[in-house]
Design a protein around this nucleic acid. Structure first.
Lengths: 341, 341
DNA sequence: GAATTTCTGATTTACGTACCTCAAAAATTC
DNA sequence: GAATTTTTGAGGTACGTAAATCAGAAATTC
C-alpha cells in the first residue's frame, strides 16, 4: 500500500499537523523534529498524491503563451494547438492566456514579458527572440518564481528553464545531408531561403546546413542567403528571380516558414528542370507540394507536441518536479511523399 | 467555475444520491427523472473530475503487457520502457504485469492471452502475431470488457481497440524512397533482410518497400528476401554470403531487428564498396554504424513513446474516454548520422 | 522560576466524487 | 384502498491532502 501522511505521522511519532508543516515548508517546526519527519518520508518512500493535493488546494495552473502575430501556416497551427489546450483546460486544471506580439520584434516581446511579470502567473511559454534584453526579462521572470519555457525558437540555456522545440542545428545538418545525397549532379549549386537571422532557430539551421555541406559535400556551391521574413509574397518574387538568374540552380533549402510563395514560384518551372527542394514545416501547401513532387523533403516539428510538452514542463516546474527528458524531446520529423501522415 | 455534482442536483431539482445513481448507472431511477438529470448535465456542461473520482474509488488500473522473449536490442529496450512505467506505477495509479512469451509463436501467445482473460485486468497490451486464433482470443478479451492495445506489430482493426505502433507500410515506402535516391548508380541491385513473415510489421514493410521501388525506381533489381528470424548470428552468415555471391549488390534494406550480425558482416567490406544500407530501430549498434558511415539511414520507432501511449490509451479505454488521435500517433523517426539524438 | 516565545498535537473543514444506509414518498399491483 | 414495489431524499463516511484554529507542552529569555 502507498504510504500516506498518516503513515508518516505514525512512523515519525508526530502529529498530522507537523507532517503537514514539514511537507509544505510552513514554519513552526524545530530542526530535530523536521529531520525525524524527513527521515520517515525517506524510509517509507512517501510520494505526495498530486491529484489529491491539487483537489484539496483547488489549484489551477496559470500560464501565459506569448506567440508572434505571424500569419504563416505554422504559426497559425501553433496558435490553434494552444487554443486546443485551452479547450481542455477544465480537465487539466490550467488557465492559459494567449498574448500576441508583432513578429521579429524584440522590443514588443520585452514589453509583453514585463506585462506578464506584473501578473505573476505560474509559468510563461514564449517563441523567443534571443536578444540580450529579452534574456534579461526572462531571467527576472525566473527569479520571480515564474517557470519559463521557450517554444520553437530558443533563448540560450541561461534565460529559461526548458526549451520545447527541435534541435535546429541538427535539422540544418540533416537537410544538408539529404540535399547532398539527393543532388545526383556533382556540380550542384544550392540556394538558401530564410526568414530572419534575428531568430535563433533560423540561424542555427543555416549553421548546421553550411557545416555539413562544406564537410561532406564540398563540390556543392552555395549562393547568398535570401531573407524573406517568412513572407510568402516576398519569397515568391525572390525565388522567381533567383531561378531566372542562376540557371544552374539545382537545390533550394528553405529554412524558414512562409513556403507558399516558394512553392508558387517552383510550380512555374518545368518538372524536369526543377531543383531539389527541402523545406520546413508540414502545412497544407508543403504537403501538397510534397505529394506533387514539387518539394522533395519536409523537415517538421509537431506543434501539437510542442505545446503539450510545454504545458507538461510548465506544470512540473510549477510543482518543483523533475521532467522526463526522453518524453519531452521534440523530434525532427522528416517527411517524404511516402510517409505523409 | 466548473460545475459539480451538487450543481447538477440543484439544477435538476433532485438529490445528490439521484445524480450519483444516474452518473454511475446504478438502478433505481425513473426514466423521466434520469432524463432531467442528463439534461442538467448537458446544459451545465458537467465533466466528471477524474482525479477526484479515482481518489474516491481508490482506483488502480490493472494492465498486462505481453512481450516476446526476444533478445534483440529493440525488444530489450521495449521491456525496459515497460519496467520504467512500472516504476512510475504508484504515481500513475497503475499496476502493470509483464508476461513473456516465446517469439514468433502464435500458440504461446494465445495461451498467454487466455491466462490474462481469466484474471480480467482492465487492459492488455501485446506485440501481436496476426493469426486468426490470436485475433479470436483478443476479441473474447474485448467482449469481456478488457481494453486491448497492440504494440509494435498489429492484429488488424477487428481484433483490438487501438494500435500503438508505426505505419509499417509507410515505413517500407519511405525506406524505398531513400534507397532509390541514395543509389546513385541506375542499375542498383537491392537485397532484403527480414525477421519473419509471420508478423504483420515485417510483411507490411516489405510490401511498402517493393511497391515504391517498382513504381518509382523500376531500374533497381530486387534479390530474394532473406529471413533471419531477428537472429544476429543467422543474419551475419546470410549477409556475408549474399555479399560474396552478388558482387553487384549495392543496396540492403534490413526491415527486421537483430542488426548486430548485419553490421558485423558489413564492416568486413571495404568502405568504398559498401552498399547503401537502410535498417530499422536505433540501438547502440545501429547508432554506432550510422555514425561510422556503415549504415546510411535508420528508421526508428520510439519504444518509450509507444509504451507511454499504450498506457494512456488503455486508461482512456478503461474509463470509456475518447483518445486524442493526434497525440497517440506513433511517428516514423528517420535518423541520418546528422540528427542522432 | 516566572514570563515569554516557540513548537507541537488534536481536531475540524474542505476539495469533488463514490458508495452506503435508512426512511419517506410515490407509483404500482391486487 | 390496502399492500407492495419502486423511486427518491437525506445523511453519512471515505479517499489523501491542504489549511486553519486553539490549547497545551516545551524551550528560551530575563
Amino acid at each position: 500500500m502507498k504510504p500516506t501522511v498518516h503513515d508518516i505521522a505514525r512512523c515519525a511519532g508526530v502529529s498530522l499537523a507537523t507532517v503537514d508543516r514539514v511537507l509544505n515548508a510552513r514554519p513552526g517546526v524545530r530542526g530535530a523534529t523536521r529531520e525525524r519527519v524527513e527521515q520517515a518520508i525517506v524510509t517509507l518512500g512517501y510520494v505526495r498524491d498530486l491529484a489529491a493535493a491539487n483537489l484539496a488546494k483547488g489549484r489551477t495552473y496559470r500560464f501565459a503563451f506569448i506567440l508572434p502575430a505571424n500569419d504563416n501556416s505554422f504559426m497559425i497551427g501553433l496558435r490553434r494547438e494552444v487554443e486546443a489546450a485551452i479547450a481542455r483546460s477544465s480537465v487539466e486544471r490550467t488557465q492559459i492566456e494567449i498574448i500576441e506580439v508583432p513578429a521579429f520584434d524584440g522590443g514588443a516581446l520585452v514589453l509583453a514579458l514585463e506585462n506578464v511579470l506584473a501578473r505573476k502567473p505560474d509559468g510563461v511559454a514564449l517563441v523567443a527572440i534571443d536578444a540580450p534584453q529579452v534574456r534579461a526579462v526572462a531571467e527576472r521572470l525566473a527569479d520571480a518564481g515564474v517557470a519559463v519555457v521557450t517554444l520553437v525558437s530558443d533563448l540560450g540555456a541561461s534565460g529559461r528553464h526548458h526549451y520545447a522545440g527541435i534541435d535546429n542545428i541538427a535539422a540544418g545538418r540533416t537537410a544538408a545531408n539529404l540535399m547532398g545525397r539527393f543532388l545526383s549532379k556533382v556540380d550542384g549549386r544550392v540556394g538558401l531561403l530564410a526568414g530572419s537571422m534575428l531568430v535563433r532557430d533560423h540561424r542555427e539551421r543555416l549553421e548546421g546546413f553550411l557545416s555539413v555541406l562544406s564537410e561532406d559535400f564540398p563540390q556543392v556551391a552555395i549562393l547568398p542567403v535570401i531573407e524573406a521574413r517568412d513572407d510568402p509574397a516576398l519569397a515568391e518574387t525572390s525565388i522567381r528571380e533567383a531561378l531566372r538568374r542562376h540557371v544552374g540552380l539545382n537545390g533550394i533549402y528553405s529554412l524558414g516558414a512562409g513556403n507558399r510563395g516558394l512553392i508558387r514560384a517552383l510550380r512555374e518551372v518545368d518538372a524536369a528542370r526543377r531543383p531539389v527542394v527541402i523545406a520546413h514545416e508540414l502545412t497544407a501547401s508543403t504537403r501538397k507540394a510534397l505529394a506533387d513532387g514539387v518539394i522533395d523533403a519536409v523537415l517538421n516539428q509537431d506543434a501539437g507536441h510542442e505545446v503539450r510538452s510545454a504545458i507538461r514542463v510548465l506544470k512540473a516546474k510549477a510543482d518543483g518536479l523533475p521532467v522526463l527528458a526522453a518524453q519531452e524531446r521534440i523530434r525532427i520529423d522528416i517527411f517524404l511523399k511516402d510517409n505523409l501522415p
